[in-house]
Structures are given as C-alpha cells and as structure tokens.
C-alpha cells in the first residue's frame, strides 16, 4: 500500500499546533492540488483535489471521515474516492519536544510497508525517478522550518496511505506511492511555516 510518513519540527507549543491543525480551513489550501472542501460536520468532509499524472490532470472528489480526535496530539482519518476506487487513511501526530531545541529537523521518512522486499527496492528506485520527474532536479531538499531558540518546540508527523483499487489499482499504486512523498513534505512544510511563532 503506498504510504508516506513525514516528520518535521515547529517552533510552537502543542496547543498552538493543535489550534491550527484542528480547523481544516487553516491548512486545506496547503494540500497540493487542493480545489475546495466542504465540511459536513466536525468529522466528515468532502474534498476536491486536482492531481496530475502523465500530463493528464484529473479532478477527484474524496470523502474524508475523522475517526479519532485526541486533543492535542493525534487525529486519524479515513478517506474514500467518491467516483474513483481509491481509499486511504492518515494520521497526524504532535509530540512535545520541550523548549529551545536548536536541532530542529525536517526528516522525510518515506517508508513503504515492505522496505527490503523487491517491492520496497522497486519503490525506492521509482521514488527517485518520479521525484526527479516532478521536481526536475537531482535531489529534493526538505525545507527546514525556522526554529527560534528559547521556546517550546513540537514535532509533527504526518502519515498517509492511499490505495487505488480495482483492476488498475496495482499499477496505479506504483505511481501513487512516490507522488505522496512530495505532497506530504509540502503540506508539512507549509503547516510548519504557518504555525511557527515569531521568537
């Protein structure tokens, strides 16, 4: 199953991070390809996202259902394509790092479930290939959020897995996996930038 995990550190306290993340209106536009979303209630929402594959841009609608709100550290959700046979789930985790850390890092940790297996290795090669295609560069540098000394830091982690089903699912998943990584990194970076409080 195409899965990505991305961790970054922000110079803000957990409640500050939570305040921001709790309301999806704050960060929804940061999602790559975001078109619009509609909140049905606190747990349910419909998302319209535009994605590109091989030059073809497809606009797809997803139903997202929050399955757990654990203030101030964890949100989990499941998602389902309205028209497309695509399902997924995700998690947002916040961990208090204490104050004044200056070793803040932004560590992309793309971790397909089966790393080490042939599929894992394939995944790795594909990731590099697709990243070069997407970014048109040799390597992608994760952007480090600015962390100012002397204040509380929070580590935030996104975990997202998306799985295409149906007859085309297995090959689509090959393409989806590597595409998730830049999406997760971008989202984390933008949230980090927004939440980072001035020293």
């Amino acid at each position: 199953m195409p899965e990505v995990e991305h961790t970054t550190t922000v110079a803000a306290s957990m409640p500050q991070v939570w305040n921001f993340v709790e309301d999806m209106d704050n960060w929804a536009p940061f999602l790559t390809g975001y078109q619009r979303h509609e909140k049905i209630n606190r747990d349910e929402s419909i998302w319209v996202v535009k994605g590109e594959l091989g030059g073809l841009t497809r606009t797809a609608e997803f139903k997202v259902q929050v399955t757990e709100w654990q203030e101030p550290s964890r949100v989990t959700f499941v998602m389902q394509g309205v028209q497309e046979p695509v399902t997924g789930s995700g998690e947002f985790l916040a961990t208090d790092l204490g104050g004044g850390a200056d070793d803040a890092s932004s560590a992309p940790a793309a971790a397909p479930a089966s790393t080490g297996s042939w599929l894992g290795r394939l995944w790795d090669r594909l990731s590099r290939w697709l990243l070069r295609r997407v970014t048109n560069s040799v390597d992608v540098q994760a952007v480090k959020p600015a962390v100012s000394g002397g204040q509380r830091n929070t580590q935030i982690t996104f975990r997202l897995n998306v799985q295409a089903g149906g007859a085309t699912g297995p090959v689509l998943n090959l393409l989806l996996g590597p595409m998730l990584k830049p999406v997760a990194e971008d989202l984390a970076m933008k949230i980090a930038r927004s939440v980072d409080s001035p020293g």
Binding site: L119, L122, R125, L126, W129, A167, T168, P170, V171, N173, L174, L175
Partner: peptide, 14 residues
C-alpha cells in the same frame, strides 16, 4: 499491461 511487476520494472528503468 496491468501487471505491477511488469510495469514497475519498466517504470524503474525509465
């Protein structure tokens, strides 16, 4: 043409 092993190998080879 929907075999992920066949297609994955081709993709990985560019």
């Amino acid at each position: 043409m929907l075999d992920p092993v066949v297609i994955g190998d081709r993709l990985a080879k560019g």
